[in-house]
Amino acid sequence: MARFTLPRDIYYGAGAISELKALKGHKKAMIFTGGSSMKRGGFLQKVEDVLHNIGIETQLFEGIEPDPSIETVFRGAEAMRAFEPDVIVAIGGGSPIDAAKAMWVFYEHPEKTFENIKDPFTIPVLRNKAIFVAIPSTSGTATEVTAFSVITDYKTDIKYPLADFEITPDIAILDTDIPLTMPKKLTAHTGMDALTHAIEAYVATARSNFSDALALQAISDIYDSLVASYYGDKAAREKMHIAQCMAGMAFSNALLGIAHSLAHKTGAVFHIPHGCCNAILLPSVIEFNAKVCADRYAVIARHLGLTGNTDAQLTNALIDSIKALNKKLDIAQTYKENGVSEEVLREHADTIAANAVLDPCTGSNPRQIDKEQMKEVLLCAYYGTPVTF
């Protein structure tokens, strides 16, 4: 028996924030956001206005940092316990939405510790106190539709991807006006994160016919729109916002692979944005996994109109197309080119590899991997050398 889980409702399109009116009847909403971009763009005010117009009292929790910490999570949970909302609304990029998901757990279950929930599918039943609404501002993480939340332990420099269907939001609002405000670099990084989500979902061990269809459509739409989105095309930005959501629906159910395992661990240590790490890693990971699933990568290549006479040729064509896409997005292909010194690599490579093997995403990778192989994949991504093992 398998399971496929999505939010109950997804509202999408220009001005979709207005659909918060569906929350009429609730009493209190706590709104979570990151920096000032949602306030500057007027989107935070729109959220508050809709909620106030239907009689919902609000309280704002702002300033959630990129790559939110365990400490921020517990601070937010404490604020929720004081305010007692019956709706949680998170607006912004992946960080504030991920943080609010984790805060939700400790709001409803204050007796739990982070250690109690960091392993996959260990989060207790939620929705005893509140439901969750997610409004993404970026086109990449898809946390608005997923069962994941990435939280960083800065004492150990480890990113933990919390994974449980309980933290899948109840309502996702994809207001396509919001991503029009994204800067170019963020558009590139989040777009490559979305592409990695879709490709990893298509080859992951928990894939299904449901996730396959969503992943392939997402891959095609991302290839069609990401470069134009990078250069600010309005229609492309809108298409990317929907495509990344489809990729999220796919990977939330099919799960991911070692590109994300390594991205979680290298991002925290090398201080490189998550999407950029995925862009660097994806070609090397495909080379490693092709030993067991070249036929799946070949399907993706054919779907994109790439050419080749064999599965191996088609897989190589897919890898080359990803590198070409990175170049068009001004993303340097290796960790070395992104400013990571060999000294830092040598100092942390063994620990990164060991932690990446333990990452929850590794279990659903199509090819099994050990610590030494993980380190070799990392080194290949650092130097840009082929993965031949």
Rank of each mutant, 00 (worst) to 15 (best):
A163V: 11
I173E: 08
D119A: 15
K21P: 08
E111Q: 10
T351G: 10
S321F: 10
I167H: 04
K185Y: 06
L262S: 01
A324W: 08
E115P: 11
A279W: 03
L318W: 07
R40N: 10
A90N: 07
D164W: 05
E200Y: 07
I242V: 15
K184H: 05
G35N: 12
R207A: 13
V285S: 06
E166K: 15
A130H: 01
R346S: 10
Q45D: 13
P136R: 09
L174D: 10
I258G: 06
A100C: 10
F132W: 02
P169G: 06
E238S: 15
F83H: 03
S284V: 01
F4Y: 14
A236L: 12
I319K: 09
A228W: 13
E65Q: 14
C245V: 12
T5M: 13
A349Q: 11
E71H: 12
G41R: 13
S137D: 07
G93N: 03
G41K: 11
D224I: 08
S36Q: 12
S211F: 09
F210W: 15
A381G: 08
A298C: 02
I31F: 03
I151P: 13
L306T: 07
S18Y: 07
S284D: 00
T152H: 09
L281H: 00
Q45H: 12
V387K: 02
P169V: 09
G232Y: 06
T113L: 03
S137A: 12
I158K: 12
T33Q: 03
Y11V: 07
I331Y: 02
P283L: 04
Y231D: 05
T196N: 05
Y160M: 04
V340R: 01
S284Y: 00
Y223K: 02
G94P: 03
L255V: 07
R127A: 04
S341E: 04
I331R: 05
K184T: 14
K327E: 14
D311Q: 12
T310A: 15
A130T: 08
T205P: 13
V73M: 14
A290P: 12
S37W: 00
P169K: 04
E111V: 11
K28E: 01
T5P: 01
C293F: 03
M30V: 14
M374G: 15
I300M: 11
L378V: 13
E166S: 05
R40P: 01
L282Q: 01
A243P: 06
Y335T: 04
P161G: 04
L6G: 13
N309Q: 06
I135A: 02
S341M: 06
H26V: 03
I199W: 01
A279Y: 01
H271Y: 03
H52M: 00
I242F: 15
F32D: 07
N355T: 02
G305E: 11
L282H: 01
K234A: 07
A236Y: 06
D49S: 08
A228I: 04
F210D: 08
L174H: 05
I97S: 11
D119Q: 13
F132A: 00
